[in-house]
Each structure stands twice: as structure tokens, then as C-alpha cells.
């Protein structure tokens, strides 16, 4: 796929940023174009299509976690809306309480 997002496997429901993408960037998806509602840093993921709560997240064609809420197409997919099927993910909190893992 040309552009700032990579599809790593045909089965995937996420795309990976191959460069940092600014908020407001238009991203063409199969179901139509979406506008990024937050900046997506290099190597972070967005939803390729609408993902339901409880659905498996597929990257490399394999499950990397489970959606903890409904994730609309084009939204950032990360520690705030998916969880491990194995052990919980821990992360630093910034002084203002915002997760360093999400805020960039």
C-alpha cells in the first residue's frame, strides 16, 4: 500500500504507520476516506475498518489482542482500546495523568 500506512497481512484489521501522520490527514480505506482525529506516530496502528468490542485485533495476520470498546475505522488502536489475551500491559503515566503510551 502506498502512503503513510502499511497493511502487513491481508487478514489484518489494523494498519501500521510507516511515518508519523498528522491530525487531520485523510486516509483512504476500503470503506471510504477517513480523517485522523489525532496524530499517529511512526509504527502506531489505526483501525482498517470498524472493529466491534470484543473482536480480535489482527496484525501480521495473527491476534495481538482484543478490542475493549468499539473502534471506528481510522481511529488509533493502542493500549487505551485493546488488551492482551495473555498478560496485562503496564505503562508510565505522565504527571498530568495522561498515559505516556498514548500521548506523544
Amino acid at each position: 500500500m502506498i502512503g503513510p500506512f502499511l497493511l502487513l497481512s491481508a487478514a489484518d484489521n489494523v494498519l501500521v504507520a510507516r511515518e508519523s501522520a498528522a491530525e487531520g490527514t485523510d486516509v483512504p480505506l476500503e470503506q471510504g476516506s477517513v480523517m485522523l482525529t489525532r496524530p499517529i506516530p511512526l509504527a502506531h496502528k489505526i483501525a482498517r475498518r470498524d472493529i466491534a468490542e470484543g473482536e480480535k485485533i489482527l496484525k501480521y495476520g495473527m491476534p495481538i489482542g482484543i478490542a475493549t470498546e468499539a473502534i471506528p475505522a481510522g481511529a488509533h488502536v493502542h493500549v487505551h482500546n485493546i488488551r492482551s489475551a495473555y498478560t496485562p500491559t503496564h505503562m508510565l503515566q505522565d504527571a498530568d495523568g495522561v498515559s505516556a503510551a498514548v500521548a506523544q
Partner: peptide, 17 residues
């Protein structure tokens, strides 16, 4: 798990990823 804060900041969300 074997998962550090920097992993998440770098775009990794879970241990299996």
C-alpha cells in the same frame, strides 16, 4: 509481562504484539 513503558510509547500495545 516482559513489556516496558517504552514499548507502548513506540506503538506496541500488548505482549503478543
Amino acid at each position: 509481562g516482559s513489556f516496558a513503558a517504552g514499548n507502548a510509547a513506540g506503538g506496541l500495545s500488548t505482549i503478543e504484539e
